[in-house]
Design a protein around this nucleic acid. Structure first.
Lengths: 195, 195
DNA sequence: CGCGACGTTGATTTGCCTCAACGATTGTGG
DNA sequence: CCACAATCGTTGAGGCAAATCAACGTCGCG
């Protein structure tokens, strides 16, 4: 086992231990997709046909409201990324997903999920755990959105996701945090002097 | 099968179909807990030992920040409720969970989860689906928190959760939406005249 | 080189909060 | 069964955090 899918297998081995046979079978459902900078992995209104695991590059997931883009998620190497609602129910996607760098993802297609779960129940276990943890993380994020000021949210972000802070423009971090670029610039100036 | 656990079994049958034997086995892991109005199902700092399914009454989940309570979730009949992070990792809970009415929940204990998943894999499938959908819903909630004004968030809330709006005080809905009672009162007045 | 993308700065505006006071309703003990 | 205290919602005045508007400097890139 030393394929292009190794990073994904390593990620899953955190929660489930797959046999050689299971790994080979699982990999037969996967495919690799490269996405050039500024290209879209998904557009609002389309159906999200696959769950994606980032092995290279960086993405943003966002919607557009009154012409303003509103980022809800970043994803870099070893993150899963999808419009989960659209992927789950095969309804039109709420989000655009766009590459911020030349990127690559491993794709797990919706129409193979039932077969995957049936043939390799450990995969369903993996996603049970992954979604459970992801849910807990979103809950914490909501708490912070409601209880912290803009400056506090920014400080928390750069402490929590230093790798993202280095790779994406400030104004996108602002969008993720619900702050304008102008305000974020002022916050950064304040922080630069001692808080 | 016509026990006190029927509402829970009905809820789970939306996603998985259990045999008579599986139902009986599953029910052997459950217990019923009554919670009087204003009593706590969980306190911040405690470990969340069970996942709870509300069969009667109403709860709020909140944390306290600078003495201000900050509600992140309501739960009424047929909702699941837990501090998911604490339940998952058995770390100290971030949330208080308090009954707003005389209530009752069915409890599924953490230390039985592995056994349940092993003996009844369909249960793990159920929670995979449930957490996946819950995750999608939280993602949508974050989008709305970032893109809607206070008035819009309130209008969306009462349209989406009319039953909760009728049962809990306005100021708690405000807390859930990140708004003060004073501001919410003004918003309601505006809405009462035609928007 | 020239243009677009990005960050910064200053001036002004606004959405929402804080503070304070006041009804209305509910509940509770005497 | 009444008196009194909590609880909850409302109203008005004033204040602050963050948005908007506008202009400008810098950098990278076609």
């Amino acid at each position: 086992m030393d394929s292009q899918y190794t990073p994904l297998i390593n990620n899953m081995s955190k929660f489930v231990s797959l046999t050689e046979g299971e790994i080979n079978l699982f990999c037969s459902f996967l495919s690799l997709k490269e996405v050039k900078k500024k290209d879209y992995l998904l557009r609002q209104g389309e159906v999200c046909h696959s769950n994606n695991f980032v092995i290279k590059g960086c993405f943003k997931a966002f919607d557009i409201n009154d012409g303003e883009e509103n980022i809800t998620q970043f994803a870099i190497e070893n993150w899963w990324l999808a419009d989960v609602k659209s992927f789950t129910t095969q309804c039109p996607a709420l989000f655009f997903i766009q590459a911020l760098e030349d990127s690559a993802v491993i794709q797990l297609p919706y129409d193979k999920m039932e077969e995957v779960y049936q043939k390799i129940p450990k995969i369903e276990r993996f996603f049970r755990i992954a979604f459970q943890i992801s849910f807990a993380n979103l809950q914490e994020r909501i708490v912070k959105m409601n209880s912290l000021s803009g400056k506090e949210r920014y400080k928390h972000f750069i402490a929590t996701y230093p790798k993202i802070e280095q790779r994406v423009p400030q104004y996108m971090i602002g969008s993720y945090l619900g702050l304008t670029p102008v305000f974020l610039s002022n916050v950064r100036k304040e922080i630069a002097r001692g808080n």
